[in-house]
Amino acid sequence: MNGMQLNSPVLITGASHGLGMATASVLASEGVPLALCARNAAPLNEFAEKLRAEFDVPVATRALDVNDTELMVEFVHEAQRRLGDLKGLVANVGGARGRSIVDTEPDDWAYSLSVNVTSAMTALRASLSQLRRTGGAAVLVSSISGTKPSPGLAYGSTKAALNHAATVLGRELGPAGVRVNAVAPGSMLIPDRNWDRLRLADPGRYEAFLEEFPNRELLDPRDVAEVIAFLLSDKAKAINGAVIPVDGGQNAPSAYGY
């Protein structure tokens, strides 16, 4: 057990695949009620049914785009009505548009900032009164690209902003009993996602990328999820305002340069 109080719900954004799904599974296995959101209803609801059947935990779901501020706030309040005050928040959704400075338009910057930073701040702000009452914690999912350079200017820059937000919020909200930390995962091998597609489409480049890892393996999302669960738990009460790298010692964040 990671020390989560049972019957204390956690809200996870981007919960229908990859790290969000792995985090939900880890928490559900410990009896934690969950509020899960993602853009596509079908896979989200299918996953929620699986968690209910396997772990007998309450799971509230909502299909939404985290960039829709009104819907994000509504879901935070809906989660409270259905499950009680939140004990934890995992702001997991991420993405970006544009690559180099030349091909990144102002709208690309706006989108990247919204999906990586503003959506996380919206969810945290909306859930803050609940987290204060429960003495809860938030984990902001950043990236190795927030501290190590790789192609994708807007992605890395906005993840760096998320890291900074965690350090500021740890100070700002600590007096209210709310902890905020960021987790910076390395490259994860997720079925039918970027690095898995590279593995199948370009085995030579993928094998070269493995040299960036001391153990020549990309990360399993569950290993990152275990760290997130720990940071949400009371056992991590001394960790606040930190950016925790969970990258297996990875060097370059990308198979495509730098």
Rank of each mutant, 00 (worst) to 15 (best):
S29K: 15
N194Q: 11
N40Q: 14
P9G: 06
N240K: 14
A120F: 05
G94H: 02
G186I: 00
L113F: 15
S143T: 04
G14W: 00
G257I: 11
E54P: 10
L11G: 02
E70F: 13
L210I: 03
T23I: 08
V102P: 13
N240E: 10
G135V: 04
Q80G: 09
A154I: 01
P33L: 00
G98F: 00
V73H: 08
P106Y: 02
I101H: 12
A41S: 14
P253F: 02
P203V: 07
N215L: 13
R199G: 10
A96R: 06
N2L: 14
T122C: 05
G84A: 05
L198K: 02
A184V: 07
W195L: 10
L27K: 01
E46G: 15
A41D: 09
A238N: 14
S254Y: 13
R205T: 09
A225R: 07
A35H: 04
A38N: 05
E78G: 08
N67F: 05
A166D: 03
S157D: 11
D220E: 14
L11W: 12
T118G: 00
W195K: 08
S119V: 00
L231T: 04
R197I: 14
M4H: 15
G3W: 03
P58T: 11
M21N: 12
P149W: 02
T69Q: 14
L231F: 03
F55P: 01
N40D: 11
F47T: 04
I12K: 00
G84F: 09
L140D: 03
G20W: 00
M121K: 12
T158H: 05
A161L: 09
D85M: 14
L200W: 07
V168A: 11
D65T: 04
A96S: 14
L124F: 01
M21V: 04
A252N: 15
G3K: 07
G177C: 01
P191K: 08
S157K: 09
L34E: 03
A255K: 07
G136R: 02
L128I: 10
Y155F: 10
L153Y: 12
P33Q: 07
E70D: 12
M21H: 13
Q250L: 06
A38H: 00
R216T: 11
R133N: 15
R193T: 09
T104H: 05
D85N: 15
L44G: 01
R62T: 07
V90N: 04
C37Q: 01
H77S: 13
I144V: 15
G152F: 06
K87I: 12
R125V: 03
A91R: 04
G20D: 08
G152K: 03
P43Y: 09
G249S: 11
S142I: 02
L89V: 15
L231R: 03
G31A: 10
G177W: 01
R171F: 05
V117Q: 00
V90K: 07
G177T: 00
L36D: 04
R62N: 10
T147F: 08
G177Q: 06
